[in-house]
Design a binder for these strands. Structure first.
Length: 488
RNA sequence: CGGGACGUUGCCUAGCGGCUAAGGCGCCAGCUUUGGGAGCUGGAUAUCGGCGGUUCAAAUCCGCCCGUCCCGACCA
């Protein structure tokens, strides 16, 4: 049979699409730009949701649900906000066969409708903070879409909080950014850089936008989550005033923060290989698969042997399945489960059975180990932990190996190479993260973007010490240290 | 939204004015097999992306539209 998955070295985009489709994570829909999330993809999303949701609750947030449809006039109340989102709005103009008095937009994000209600719910400093989150889908009419990475409709989570003071809101912004970072790193095995966006890249309506940025295997950056400090912009736009402790009046301070099914794309592009999906054990629907190998005369004995092993793994809390399908060969099954990203494969045939053994194969490295069946649960658990750790470490090492300090514009251009190079669009294309000083001017950023497609991803929070020297783009005195990259 | 490539069965492809649209993979049934994508036999599956036009005759030529992918602009 022909290779199902295009090699990363040939066409990185096609490789990505091949993985999504062949691993049955998602499929195209009849409506352009939309996506069907299939059960294997949705299962990943459910595990991501569960982990983040738990952390949201631990940090004091409650889930709520606000409507899909928002009056057009609400969007217009915050000038920057509407300007930023207007080009990608879908608008409902008719209902029940009649034209509506006021058009309704399908939410591209919910700040406006939520703050319209916060006005009703906040009268006193005693009503604050309000710490709400919602899991929902939003719609942005994207011109160019890609499964999981950028679809018109996408599933996400959006937190919207209101606070008594600027300090509280800023703390909340940073707290949630840190929740994003920690879960991404520990749970999704995505090493990320937490930083602040430049004004050019910040959210429409925010005072400051913070993000976590990850590096994909083609060395491009992917924004994996954002946390915004919104100041009093929405408090003022929606007249959310409250009585302060000292008897005065003030507008509520706001934050919002979101992450989406795009994370699934990030996981795929960070960990997977030319054989298919590679999943962190904590996210995998099946953490281990047992492939029994038998001839007709050994079939029932081998199946018994496999069943006992399966039971012991289940008792140990490991998500395991046994592939007892008689119509496909072991080789087929190996390839199929590799494509699906199952972290550990257990092969059990007559030879193993006689010796009381089994063969463990780890998905991330392909390494095979022979173990005693009696200690299968312990050894699989160890291996799952090792894979979880290795995926993170491997991705982090890759990022470090592809991050370079850049001190001037020539060096920057040399790092990224010229457009149209023959390996462009493949995993071997040039570039990566450039760590460089920056003067803070919007013109510098715009010039770099226009000439190289490289953008300022973020100013890392933990890397702003000893800013001495010149902007790597224009040579004037530097104010920040930033990470630059091409991005998704 | 601009430039490019491509739409033929579930998937990949052949056919490029003329008979019942061909092959591989997959799928179904049966037999046989099983340590890296097995074999044999039989079987089902196509309004050739859609609409319109040219023609005695259209998958094939022309026009418009739709969709997917890539590049650009825009963006999570």
């Amino acid at each position: 049979m022909a290779e199902k998955i295009t090699s990363r070295a040939v066409d990185y985009s096609q490789w990505y699409i091949d993985i999504v489709l062949n691993a049955k994570l998602a499929d195209y829909s009849p409506v352009k730009g939309c996506m069907v999330v299939r059960p294997r993809g949705y299962a990943i999303w459910e595990r991501i949701q569960a982990e983040y949701d738990r952390r949201f609750k631990e940090t004091g947030h409650q889930n709520a649900y606000f409507p899909l449809l928002i009056p057009m006039s609400f969007l217009k109340k915050e000038a920057e906000h509407v300007e930023g989102f207007a080009p990608e709005l879908a608008v409902v103009t008719h209902g029940g066969g009649e034209e509506l008095e006021e058009p309704l937009v399908i939410r591209p994000t919910s700040e406006t409708i939520i703050w319209s209600k916060y006005k009703d719910w906040i009268q006193s400093w005693r009503d604050l903070p309000l710490l709400y989150n919602q899991w929902c889908s939003v719609l942005r009419w994207e011109k160019r879409t890609r499964l999981f990475l950028r679809t018109a409709e996408f599933l996400w989570q959006e937190g919207h909080t209101a606070h008594e003071t600027e300090k509280d809101a800023v703390e909340e912004t940073m707290r949630m950014l840190d929740v994003y970072r920690e879960v991404a790193e520990r749970h999704l095995c995505l090493p990320v850089i937490a930083g602040r966006k430049s004004d050019a890249e910040k959210f429409a309506g925010a005072v400051a936008t913070y993000c976590i940025e990850a590096m994909m295997q083609d060395r491009k950056a992917l924004q994996a989550g954002t946390s915004h400090f919104l100041g009093q912009n929405f408090g003022k736009a929606f007249e959310v005033q409250f009585q302060t402790r000292d008897g005065g009046l003030d507008y509520a301070w706001a934050t919002s923060w979101g992450l989406s099914t795009r994370l699934i794309g990030a996981i795929i592009m960070t960990h997977s290989d030319d054989k298919g999906l590679v999943l962190p054990p904590s996210l995998a629907q099946e953490q281990a698969v047992i492939v029994p190998i038998y001839k007709t005369d050994t079939k029932s004995a081998v199946l018994d042997y496999a069943a006992r092993m399966e039971a012991s793994l289940k008792d140990a809390g490991i998500r395991v399945v046994t592939d007892t399908d008689d119509t496909s060969s072991p080789g087929w099954k190996f390839a199929e489960w590799e494509m699906r990203g199952v972290p550990v494969r257990i092969e059990a045939g007559p030879r193993d059975m006689e010796a009381g053994k089994a063969v463990l194969v780890r998905r991330d490295t392909g390494e095979k180990t022979v173990i005693a069946a009696s200690e299968a649960a312990v050894r699989v658990r160890e291996l799952l932990d090792a894979i979880q750790k290795n995926l993170y470490e491997r991705a982090k090492a890759f990022r470090l190996a592809n991050t370079r300090d850049v001190s001037d514009y020539e060096e920057m251009k040399a790092f990224y190479g010229k457009a149209g190079e023959e390996n462009e669009g493949t995993a071997t294309a040039r570039g990566g993260f450039a760590r460089a000083l920056w003067c803070g001017s919007r013109e510098c950023e715009a010039k770099l973007k226009a000439e190289t497609k490289v953008t300022l991803r973020c100013m890392p929070l933990d890397d702003q010490d000893h800013i001495e020297g010149k902007c790597a783009l224009c040579g004037s005195p530097a104010k920040f240290r930033a990470i630059f990259a091409r991005n998704y």
